[in-house]
Design a protein around this nucleic acid. Structure first.
Lengths: 201, 201, 201, 201
DNA sequence: CATGAATGAGCTTTCATTCAT
DNA sequence: CATGAATGAAAGCTCATTCAT
């Protein structure tokens, strides 16, 4: 047997990773349709044919990318779940989200841009819907566990807040006062553990 | 012959409008790249050549569309400006936004999808940035005028809220409890006119 | 309305015909897979794009060709049907077949070459089978009407004879003694009208 | 070490044979162009590289196949040569042909399909014409030796009959009444040894 | 000897745009 | 003004072949 199986596997993994990195860069800058497979291969510094031995199609590359972006989200939720109060939860969630955006800015620009392109996402639609539903439920449970009434509605409010912050943060090239905005957002949520009217004074 | 000239102008205007309406439908369903000029002409029920006598290129059609979506935003702000309190302002702004999304759902799906594709929007980038900046300023002035401290930061919070709600509302095919969510969002903002800490517990 | 509809139709017909003629030439020489669409368009002296406005695909060009070859066969049968004896029928059928091969040599080389390429013919398979079945029946009826016993089997013999002659005639570039071969073939069939044992010595 | 060398040679021969068998199956089902080298190697259960150590190219595999089909033909002629009368010769030839088609149906479907693609055959440098000429001569000598006048022309008739039967038999998936058709074909040829008019009524 | 990762030319097809009529 | 035939560049993808291991 030639070339150990291990060596081959490592070789393949390296190539695959290079393609994915090239894809984030190009897709996020020029869009999915605006990036040709030829350009993708060039950026990854491989031949087009090789790309197709790793991914079934150009769409499959995108799919792999999007899946990895879903993992990101799950992690931010886990981070936040350690906080005992609603306000702590919100603060942690938003802070963790911004950290994640900093780490994978291109991936998230791409992911947000795709949210409303039905055709491109046809094969991603169901997984995405399921994922959004699950995320909403986790938020609802988290808020309910922290004593918030109308947790279902408040979860939607929080979800919108995360998405809105994401959107604004990605839009700005830099200089977005994320820390201040997060603090202002968080103080709208109850900071104590005891039950109270959602927003009273 | 001024009469004929008038008739011609009206006819041209009608044709142009038909193209734009066809474009919203197709672009929002299949994406910009996923819509061929031939399909566009067919949907507008005119010949391809005629389309090119109204618009310089396919991109020009998109540009025209996006510009009209900016007008929408300006109107929602005007609606809200009549409210005296911050909470009233927020409520009116969000309600008006949802109404606008209902009226031009396709246009907004398209517009949101394009937000993060820098290359496609290259020619729209500057106008867009200027527009976003102006919108932020209008929000800031509105909140400051209603006695909110840190109006600059709070304007960003509000902007994110509007965007987040827009995103969520467009994502859902139907059945989004917009009224409840808006109420929950609004009650996080001060409802009285007197100066106070934003939300202190 | 620009360019009369008639002029357009004529234009299209001329182009379509040019494509078909180019296709017979190239497909018969290099095979279906061996002919690229680019080569096809070049031979027809049009742009590739135009070819696709006349035919849905490369395969559709082939289909159109094959259909026209079936018409040929039907005509040879009609020619032969005027003869009262079996031998006259066979003679006329074979003579007419050779004439047809002379007229459309390339088309028939192509058609024969495709007979056994299942994948290429996938969409042609059913029509072809139906056509072969119908042809066999027409031969059987023709022989039975001319007093031949075992007309079903004899029809198969005749069918094979036609196919074999076609094969041999196409194989040879020229100099095939068609007239002599046809005479020798025909005299194996009964020349009188009265009923008799098919061929008894 | 002659033992090892022998074992190696046997192994190589076995591999080569596996490739050829895989090739008949795939080429006959999907055509030569429709079969990829990768698919070929997979069907033969070897690596692509190994295939290329046995055959210079994909075309070389086809060539080897076609050559083996010519051997088949020679054998049918030898079978028939034992018969003393023309009718016996024809019967044996056709019977032997059908037996051969049963044994190597896929190979013959492939071979017949290639008969009319001049460019492909040219590239293969198959001595097809020479082979056909030699076959014709053997038929002519066989018929002449059995007292048939115009043996040259009759040989062409017989050749066409064999080809026609081959064609029809391969076309039908099953249920072709080969025995009956062969009997009907054979009785058109003289069954006695003495000289006589071929078929006079 | 045997493997399969890697290459890149070439395939079919689409589509924005032009222009003769 | 209005048409749609015509163009040809460029897209996504396949595949025969090579070669480091």
């Amino acid at each position: 047997m030639p070339r150990t199986a291990d060596a081959n596997a490592a070789l393949r993994e390296k190539t695959r990773e290079r393609v994915l990195q090239a894809a984030v860069r190009l897709f996020s800058r020029h869009g999915f349709d605006g990036t040709s497979v030829r350009a993708l291969a060039e950026e990854a510094d491989i031949a087009v044919g090789l790309l197709y031995s790793h991914f079934e199609s150009k769409e499959a590359v995108l799919l792999a990318l999007m899946q990895s972006s879903m993992v990101d989200v799950a992690r931010t939720l886990e981070d936040a779940d350690r906080e005992p109060t609603a306000r702590g939860f919100v603060t942690a969630l938003l802070t963790s989200t911004v950290a994640m955006l900093d780490a994978h800015r291109d991936l998230w620009r791409l992911s947000q841009g795709l949210r409303h392109q039905p055709e491109v996402l046809a094969r991603l639609k169901l997984p995405l819907e399921h994922f959004l539903g699950a995320t909403h439920q986790r938020l609802e449970r988290a808020l309910a566990a922290r004593g918030l009434p109308e947790a279902g509605i408040e979860a939607r409010v929080l979800f919108a807040t995360v998405e809105g912050l994401t959107q604004q943060y990605l839009q700005q090239e830099g200089g977005y006062p994320a820390a201040d905005v997060i603090r202002a957002m968080a103080r709208k949520w109850p900071g104590a553990l005891r039950k109270r009217k959602a927003d009273a004074p």
